[in-house]
Amino acid sequence: MPLTSALRRSPRDAADTPSTLRRHINLTLELAWTQFKLKYTGSVLGYFWSLLKPLMLFSIMYAIFVVLFKQRANEFALQLLVGVVVFTFFTDATGVAMSSIAGAGHLIRKAYFPRGILVVASTISALLTMMINLTLIIVVATPLGHLHFGIRSLALPLLLVELYVLSLGFAFLLSSLFVFYRDLGHIWEIVTQVLFYASAIVYPSTVVPARFRGFFFINPVAQIVEDVRHAIVIQVVPWTAGYVGLRALIPLGLTVSILGFGLLVFRRLTPVFAEYL
């Protein structure tokens, strides 16, 4: 017996309050900024941890692959660093976003606002970290002369958008499923580990036999890492499109589909979040 409960319009709503979209953007940014702050307050080194972590990973990889295995490319150091920073963003954003819904149970049970805001906010705070890290790399590496700025660098913002869209897609998918299946946390750790080694971050993609490259660059993460290197590092690795031709559209399509699928799943599951948490 569906009946309605109508709460009629008040004269005070419409005009004097900012638009819904404006309010939601404002809330997203406020949440992102808070998360960013919270992550680094209370620790002595504060923000530097988020720089130190990729730097440590870089140093270890550098020691193993360049010093120990005598990987010849000296310029490879910067490529390695860029790859690590990009990949750190991907794991950061997806990892933090995964628990953004499940970890906000109190808020979700007792207050209403679009739940997607929580997911977007946590990816934005990871984005902030990556932006600062990239800026620092550019500032430090430019005098060393390993960076390149030219026409091809214009692709960098587009690649970062692709990276963000990909991370956001996974973020929506993971955060909604994680509410119901907590195993996902462990599964995703393994998946990212596999992706790390499958994405030519710690080795130049040239070691991949040419006939496998088409297959290799289907992986959007591998494609993004490689193309970001092409865009800003002096040691020119070619555009992935140069290796694989039209198949370069596959990672792009995958990225967009993952976002679409993530949003779809998130939308379907949103109504039951409050009941499960």
Partner: peptide, 25 residues
């Protein structure tokens, strides 16, 4: 407040609803 979705039936709300149900959420 739209936190739960009714199993059947509907709620018509005309106007901006305050998001918090309790203090200090």
């Amino acid at each position: 407040s739209q936190i739960y979705v009714p199993t059947s039936g509907s709620v018509v709300v005309d106007g901006l609803v305050s998001p918090f149900l309790e203090l200090g959420v």
